[in-house]
């Protein structure tokens, strides 16, 4: 079962490291820890005048799933406001089986995580950090 978790699409998302790093002058930053496993995500955002994300960067000290999720999130975040990011989160929740329905790209890649309940928080941690940064 677990050997199917690390499918190529998830590994590719993690390796892409989209948005990995820091912003020189972020409008806001937030850090979230998962107390159970110790994973840590820090997200910087630069917002435009309308509260939309103009630039995003993340630092992940965590597992491959957390890295892949942060990478996927960064790939779709620019131009989104808090409501838009909440909608993207629904996609992730659908992918991991917490909500009904089909997940769109890129989060459909996380479908194997549905069978690994203990790892689902790894996928959602970057969303928690970004929610804090946008609040």
């Amino acid at each position: 079962m677990s050997d199917q978790l690390y499918q190529d699409r998830i590994v590719a998302l993690a390796k892409a490291k989209t948005g990995a790093g820091k912003l020189a002058a972020p409008t806001k930053s937030a850090r979230r820890d998962n107390p159970l496993c110790g994973d840590r995500v820090t997200i910087d955002v630069r917002l435009d005048g309308q509260g939309r994300i103009a630039e995003i960067a993340h630092q992940v000290r965590g597992c491959l799933l957390c890295q892949a999720s942060a990478s996927a999130l960064a790939s779709v975040a620019v131009g989104q406001d808090a409501a838009g990011i909440a909608a993207v989160r629904h996609d992730a929740e659908r992918a991991i089986g917490r909500e009904q329905g089909e997940a769109a790209e890129p989060f459909s890649a996380f479908a194997p995580v549905a069978a690994h309940k203990a790892r689902q928080e790894c996928v959602l941690l970057p969303f928690e950090a970004l929610k804090d940064a946008l609040s």
């Binding site: 677990s2 597992c63 491959l64």
Partner: peptide
């Protein structure tokens, strides 16, 4: 490779 990913892979063995 993150330790959790090592452990998860080991579970598959």
């Amino acid at each position: 490779v993150h330790p959790h990913d090592v452990a998860q892979t080991l579970d598959s063995f």
